[in-house]
Write a protein that binds this DNA or RNA. Structure first.
Lengths: 342, 342
DNA sequence: CTGAAAGCGCTTACAG
DNA sequence: CTGAAAGCGCTTACAG
């Protein structure tokens, strides 16, 4: 490997001069600069970041912990974090962690490599085998505790997205607003007989969305139409729940707690040869990429993952800059995305 | 930050002893080991990987260059690379590069951080604005040249996936076999009047697939049914191409050069209220995640991205181990995935 | 404009 | 079983 010393010898100067040229100092005579630049090019010398970091202390890199490449919300967040980081001279290293052990390993990798900051995205341990959601949540919780205890005595800045950790600034999605916007749009379109398909895990944001559904139906005086089917929060769940729902009645519209459920519902409706939206309308939540791919294209409410990533990285930069953050949370605004299914 | 020296002082031993304990040497008295372990726990000391790397030279990390989180083939490759790496004590850092400058920056980040190896996945520069595919390819090519020139004088192992770089071992997808398996399955199902929808870029694997289509139709004596529609290789292209195709005739089956095209074709067929597959069958290529989400679910041929990632990392480990690789290429076997659209 | 010295936090190689 | 010395490749802080 070519080192700074090698280049220095070739040029007949001290390593310090090479360092100055590399770092763009203007305290170098033009003629020596030229000589050095040439030698660098010839030798293919590139500064050893490892050595530089060791002395400088900071690494100009931040680590991102996330789960599941298939959840587009997460890759959207990742993507915009990277974008903002890159623009500001930071590199990001990310770790896709799907179990406790792996997460611990990745955290230690980040810490051992002295990342300047860590952004924690929603973690879903063992979600590839979605057999036991509750257990997955428990494992996530266990890691979050480990994370908290480990990180509090290290010099890293931390920001989370949709994740609550003591003393950590969080970028929160607005699940309540998402449900509200979906319901409002259905009301505006004149639907009264609106059913809901929800996850069978009645906690967290699922519960929030159900609450919105119930309350807004009551406010409108549509109590008699209230009808909720529950299943797993994935396409298959949407398939089955819609099947059961159609066994009871054909509502004018269905509010699905997320897009995967909605996509499943769409499939079942198509199978029954009902026309969407004239015979039955469907609205989702999240705005995943697939919404563009369904037949008909799915109307939904975006949780604005890209914005979340952008804000997360911006807040991180502030922390890294020694600034204090206002409050403890930033709530991401949501957006109704009108397509064809309503 | 707690350093090895701090812990040493607390324990009244030399840093060397701490290092031995941390690295699991058994040349340490049991009593001192205990003392040290306790001090480590109390202080929250964690070895500075940066310092360790500087002296050891290797980093036990490999870098992966890729583009586009939305192409599931790539995230699948990434995912299995990470899996194999993790099992073998390696960490992976990946960079999502979508233009030349960003790619150069990421490469330098990898090199500067002295990664032990680099895996290059298919690169698609500027693909988010797919306006000019040819230009994107040119930019990719430009980077690949920069990559080649830069890397050849560094001490890194390199493996590519579906990418040709001089002297570099490549994991190749078998596009020809994919097309062959799709066509064969349609023939087995008794279809004769088979159309094809292809990309309007008639080079690379697109050309390979078209060649297979033409040749196999001829071999069967179905020349008179040959009919090719071309458009961009995305869902919208599939929409439009299918629309044009249906304006001419309703073939028994359509071979789509990739799944995105097929998904678009499916949508258009649904819009025309034709029944799939009884009135018209559709087969894709690649096996992306969405194939499960279409109505009906898309029959396709998997390019086996996960296997590609696994093999790539395994070969990388061999290189890192100082072994020579047989030949210059590994061709990934493909797999027919039967669902509902044929 | 340039350089000598010291040090970042570890490990290697040797000595005992 | 333990430690002193040297060094990994840089940069900081100082001197000139």
């Amino acid at each position: 490997m070519v080192t700074i010393e090698d280049v220095a010898k070739i040029c007949g100067v001290s390593p310090m001069t090479i360092s100055r040229v590399v770092n763009g100092s203007d305290l170098v005579k033009e003629s020596t600069r030229k000589k050095v630049l040439e030698a660098i090019k010839e030798t293919g010398y590139r500064p050893n970041m490892i050595a530089r970091r060791l002395v400088q202390g900071n690494s100009k890199t931040i680590g991102v912990l996330f789960s599941n490449y298939y959840n587009q919300a997460y890759t959207d967040i990742l993507f915009s974090i990277e974008e903002v980081a890159y623009k500001n001279g930071y590199n990001v290293i990310n770790a896709n962690v799907d179990d406790y052990e792996h997460a611990v390993n990745s955290l230690n990798f980040f810490l051992g490599n002295k990342v300047d900051g860590i952004i924690v995205l929603p973690l879903e341990m063992n979600m590839l085998n979605v057999i036991d959601y509750k257990q997955a949540m428990a494992e996530t919780q266990k890691f979050l505790e480990y994370f908290y205890n480990t990180v509090k005595e290290q010099e890293v800045s931390v920001v989370t997205v949709s994740q609550n950790i003591e003393d950590v600034f969080n970028i929160a999605f607005n699940f309540t607003e998402m449900a509200q916007k979906a319901m409002n749009f259905l009301f505006v379109k004149g639907y009264r007989d609106i059913a809901m398909i929800n996850s069978n895990l009645n906690d967290g944001f699922w519960a929030d969305k159900e609450r919105v559904y119930l309350q807004s139906m009551k406010e409108k005086g549509y109590e008699k139409y209230i009808c909720i089917e529950r299943d797993i929060g994935l396409m298959e769940g949407g398939n089955r729940a819609m099947e059961r729902l159609l066994g009871k009645k054909i509502p004018q519209a269905v509010f699905c707690a997320n897009d995967y459920i909605a996509i499943g519902a769409l499939q079942t409706i198509n199978k029954h040869k009902l026309t969407i939206p004239s015979e039955i309308a469907v609205i989702g939540n999240d705005n995943v990429y697939f919404c563009e791919m369904t037949a008909p294209k799915l109307t939904t409410v975006s949780l604005n993952a890209k914005l979340a990533g952008k804000v997360a990285m911006e807040r991180m930069l502030k922390l890294l800059n020694g600034e204090k953050l206002d409050g403890s949370e930033y709530v991401v605004e949501t957006e109704l995305i009108i397509r064809e299914s309503v």
